[in-house]
Each structure stands twice: as structure tokens, then as C-alpha cells.
């Protein structure tokens, strides 16, 4: 059992952005362990995707082709990748921690009697042994995790933990590809995916805003949102929010920032009463200057912030509005 296999995600012939991060992770871990590095991509009609993957330095690209993989289902993906893994027996299997991977990778690992180490943020190799770091308590704690016993060992990597630009390209001619056709039966696919759809037209385009003031659950009540509105006005900023605020209907969905909302990169992003969960961070960490106002000095948002005030927002925000008038 040897090698590090990156299982990449594609949709309609295009690689998911986080696929390159998983590729970079597999290449780094492979190099440090002194093991070959492979990639696999599953779907139907994959010529273009296969060529895109083969442009990277890999010992082999497995192109898992089947008509029943055209529309994603957990059953078909689990069955197809299980066959690939049993055939090639990689020591490590690395996924990007996407919504799709959340949906099938835990079952795939379990079907082989293994546990996926999900949402990994860092790794290190000591004496040939791999240690993975993942977050607990919504980013308030880290944990070191190790694999026990024989592979295959499964891990998924968090958005942004590995940088896609670190993925190494193949020297010339590209890496070797091999098409594999799994044995799949339509009758074994129990779920039936229907059309994908979007809900609301976005009336507010947060991506165009130069400054954003964003409010989180620290605001406690819908009535208090007005305070943050005043701050936004004083800063000449658009108002945005974390997910729970929009879930509660306190602000419309279109003002949500994060992995299930908008991705923004303004000159200034002010996070008020937001803890800084990864799903929020991915939506705003590209901002040029980040300010955090939070009463908890250990809140993960401070790790992303350039400037921070530890304190009660109900005292800090009024003072800030005053100071901005001067």
C-alpha cells in the first residue's frame, strides 16, 4: 500500500477551485513521505478535465468515467471510488472539504472500515509519520490527529489550508492518464437528484462595496441591528451579516457573507460580534483591511483581523460612531 491519491471534484467539465488545493496537499504530503502522488477525477465526458489535471506533476491521473457518474450521487461516487481504491491501494486519500465531499467521503471511508479525518488545516511529517491538524469547537481549539494501522487513510482539507498556486505543474507533455470504467448499476443508486436552482435574485451586490460593516449573533436582537446600520453609515459602508442573522430573517439572505453567501474582498471589512467560523472567513478573508470587534479575546476572528477591539459591542460601537464624526 503506497502513494497519496488526491480525489478531485469537477462539475460540468470544470475542476472545483478547491481541487487544486487538494492537489497541492497531496503533492506536499507525498513529497514529504517520499511516496508517489496520484489524482483521480470522477464523472462522465471528462476529456477536458483529465487534460487539465494531467498538466500537474502526478505519477498517474485516474479518470473514472461512467454515464452513471454524470449527475453526482453519493451511491455512485462511493461505489466507483471504492473500486478504484481497492484496485490501486493508495496509502492516503486526500479530498478537498467541499459540500460534495461532506456528502460521500465519510461513507466511502466507513465502507472500507476507516474514519475520514475531515476539514484538515495543517499537517506535519515526523519520522515518516503524518500528523494532521483539525479544528474543534468552531475554531476555538486545534487537535493533532494521527492515523493508526493500515491504510488507506482518508483526509479532507479545509478551504484555503493549502494554496492552489503551490500545486506543481508537470514538466512537459503532461502526466500519464488512465481511464477506468467502474462497474455501476443504476438499480443500486437510491437517490434521484433533480435540477439545481437558485432562490432569489441578488438585489444587493456586496462584491462591489468598498467598505463593509458586518454583524453577527453578538447583536442579540433584531432591534439592535439599527446600531450597526448607523456604524455602516458613518463609515460609508454596506451592511452585511453572518449566516445566523440572515437565517433569523433579521437581514435579507442577500446580505450574507460566507461559503453559503457572498464572497467579498472590500478595502475595509468590519466584523462586529462575529466569531469567525471558517464558513464565514472564506467569504471575507480576501479583504484588504479587517477589523474585529468581539468581547471574547479568543474568538477566531481576531486571527484574521488587522485591527481588533476586545470589548462589548454595545459600548464600543457607539463610541466608534462618535469618533468617526470627529
Amino acid at each position: 500500500m503506497t502513494g497519496v491519491l488526491a480525489v478531485l471534484e469537477q462539475f460540468e467539465g470544470k475542476l472545483h477551485g478547491m481541487s487544486y488545493e487538494a492537489l497541492a496537499a497531496a503533492q506536499q504530503i507525498g513529497a514529504e513521505l517520499g511516496q508517489p502522488v496520484y489524482a483521480a477525477v470522477a464523472g462522465a465526458g471528462l476529456q477536458q478535465v483529465a487534460a487539465a489535471v494531467a498538466a500537474y506533476r502526478l505519477d498517474k491521473v485516474h479518470v473514472v468515467e461512467h454515464g452513471l457518474l454524470a449527475d453526482y450521487t453519493a451511491d455512485a461516487y462511493t461505489a466507483a471510488l471504492k473500486q478504484l481504491i481497492e484496485l490501486h491501494r493508495p496509502a492516503y486519500v486526500i479530498f478537498p472539504h467541499t459540500y460534495q465531499v461532506r456528502d460521500f467521503a465519510p461513507a466511502l471511508a466507513a465502507s472500507l472500515g476507516r474514519v475520514l479525518v475531515s476539514d484538515v488545516i495543517a499537517h506535519r511529517v515526523e519520522n515518516g509519520a503524518l500528523t494532521l491538524v483539525r479544528q474543534l469547537f468552531q475554531g476555538k481549539m486545534n487537535a493533532d490527529v494521527r492515523f493508526e494501522g493500515d491504510g488507506p487513510h482518508f483526509a479532507s482539507v479545509q478551504a484555503g489550508a493549502f494554496r492552489s498556486e503551490n500545486a506543481i505543474k508537470a514538466e512537459s507533455g503532461g502526466s500519464a492518464t488512465e481511464v477506468v470504467t467502474p462497474v455501476l448499476e443504476a438499480s443500486r443508486i437510491r437517490t434521484k437528484p433533480l435540477e439545481r436552482f437558485r432562490e432569489s435574485q441578488r438585489a444587493v451586490d456586496l462584491t462591489a462595496a468598498e467598505r463593509i460593516v458586518s454583524v453577527g449573533r453578538g447583536i442579540r436582537e433584531v432591534g439592535n441591528i439599527a446600531l450597526i446600520e448607523q456604524l455602516a453609515e458613518a463609515m460609508g459602508a454596506e451592511l452585511a451579516a453572518s449566516r445566523p442573522i440572515c437565517d433569523n430573517g433579521w437581514l435579507p439572505m442577500e446580505r450574507q457573507v460566507g461559503s453559503s453567501g457572498q464572497t467579498v474582498a472590500p478595502k475595509l471589512y468590519v466584523a462586529v460580534g462575529i466569531s469567525g467560523a471558517i464558513q464565514h472567513l472564506v467569504g471575507m478573508k480576501g479583504s484588504k483591511t479587517i477589523v474585529a470587534i468581539n468581547k471574547d479575546p479568543e474568538a477566531p476572528i481576531f486571527e484574521a483581523a488587522d485591527y481588533g477591539i476586545v470589548g462589548d459591542l454595545f459600548q464600543v460601537v457607539p463610541a466608534l460612531i462618535e469618533a468617526l464624526k470627529k
Binding site: G113, R114, V115, V117, T131, Q135, L136, G139, K140, M141, N142, A143, D144, V145, R146, F147, E148, G149, H153, E298, P300, F302, E303, A304, A305
Partner: peptide
Amino acid sequence: PSVRLERIYLPQKTK
């Protein structure tokens, strides 16, 4: 078990 949690700790501040 195929994975073992070795230790937990407060994340080091890097920024």
C-alpha cells in the same frame, strides 16, 4: 480505531 486524537490545544496566534 483507524484514527487517534493525540492532543488538543489553543491555536497559536500567527497573525
